[in-house]
């Protein structure tokens, strides 16, 4: 039997975009609508595999539509297709929409088609990790056992994070990539919290590499150097779990870290599901030289210790 055709749902307030997508995905089963409410109903009614949604629409923002669909029909993979990247939309698409890819208009036809095909395959083959998270008992256990690594070289922020996190989690700090890897090599680490950059360079390259080889680790980026493009890259190439702006607030920081610990815990029980957080490969040329050599090697060699496999299985 052949695989049933990929089911895609496209949402945009511009009918001509919808016609273009329908033609582009002509070998798939495509439904299109300008009406967000209809889209939310259709997602589960037609059991779609992939959602392609515009961000700026008059009735409802794309990330809201995606958030609703994520709750109603979590199996589908979500792609945001947008003409203009403003930072708040990008943050929302991470923190609320948990999108698989953030793609700018005008798009590249082949890229978009391949992304949708990949997303559909993942949606069909890969179990869902539900948002409900974990029960109280496991949460307490997770908090005790799962290590949290904070990569940050600003002493003030380090101090602040210590105050917020130390009482509840196993927190370790690193102010440079080498030290970060030492921690990862020695301790089961489920959540990595990091700035986008420090004096020692671009931390995002490190987080992306880590996620590429160890997709079950949940990364939370906390930054005061926010810009839309960095954030988009962190989604597509780093599948960042949460993106927070400084100054760090106690409440949102703890909520995010708790959710991240829960996510890691679930993926640890269900390693297959981490394919849902597959990152787009980065061209080698973009990997900075300080990372490309031995650090990269050490990242690749991390897995068994990291997952705490011996205990889990």
């Amino acid at each position: 039997m052949t695989e049933p055709r990929i089911r895609v749902l496209c949402i945009d307030d511009e009918a001509r975009i919808l016609r273009a997508l329908k033609a582009l995905f002509r070998d798939m089963d495509v439904r299109t609508t300008v009406d967000p409410a209809e889209a939310i109903r259709w997602a589960s009614e037609f059991d779609v595999d992939v959602i392609v949604c515009d961000q700026r629409m008059p009735k409802m923002q794309g990330i809201e539509v995606l958030r609703e669909i994520r709750m109603a029909h979590p199996r589908a993979m979500r792609i945001l297709l947008t003409g203009y990247a403003d930072l708040s939309a990008v943050l929302g698409s991470v923190n609320e929409g948990e999108v698989f890819r953030y793609i700018n208009k005008p798009w590249d036809n082949n890229d978009l088609r391949q992304t949708v095909q990949l997303a559909a395959k993942i949606a069909r083959d890969t179990p869902v990790v539900l948002d409900k998270g974990i029960d109280d008992f496991s949460r307490d256990q997770a908090r005790r056992e799962v290590g949290i690594l904070v990569i940050e070289d600003d002493p003030e922020t380090q101090q602040r994070m210590r105050e917020i996190l130390q009482p509840h989690y196993q927190v370790r700090f690193a102010s440079n990539p080498d030290r970060a890897l030492q921690v990862l090599e020695q301790h089961e680490t489920g959540v990595v919290i990091s700035e986008t950059a420090g004096q020692h360079g671009d931390f995002t390259a490190l987080i992306k590499a880590l996620k590429q080889y160890h997709p079950h680790i949940a990364t939370v980026v906390v930054t005061d150097r926010a810009n839309a493009q960095t954030a988009i890259d962190l989604i597509n190439e780093g599948q960042v779990f949460r993106l927070l702006l400084k100054p760090v607030r106690m409440g949102s920081c703890r909520l995010s870290v708790d959710a991240a610990v829960g996510r890691y815990w679930q993926l640890k029980q269900n390693p297959q599901a981490s394919r849902r957080f597959l990152v787009a490969p980065r061209p080698d040329a973009l990997i900075p030289s300080w990372l490309a050599g031995s650090l990269m090697q050490r990242i690749r060699l991390l897995p068994s210790r990291l997952l705490g496999m011996a205990r889990a299985h």
């Binding site: 511009e14 975009i17 016609r19 273009a20 203009y84 005008p106």
Partner: peptide, 9 residues
């Protein structure tokens, strides 16, 4: 970007 998007596609 929106018209360029669908024209190109």
């Amino acid at each position: 970007n929106t018209p360029i998007g669908f024209v190109k596609s």
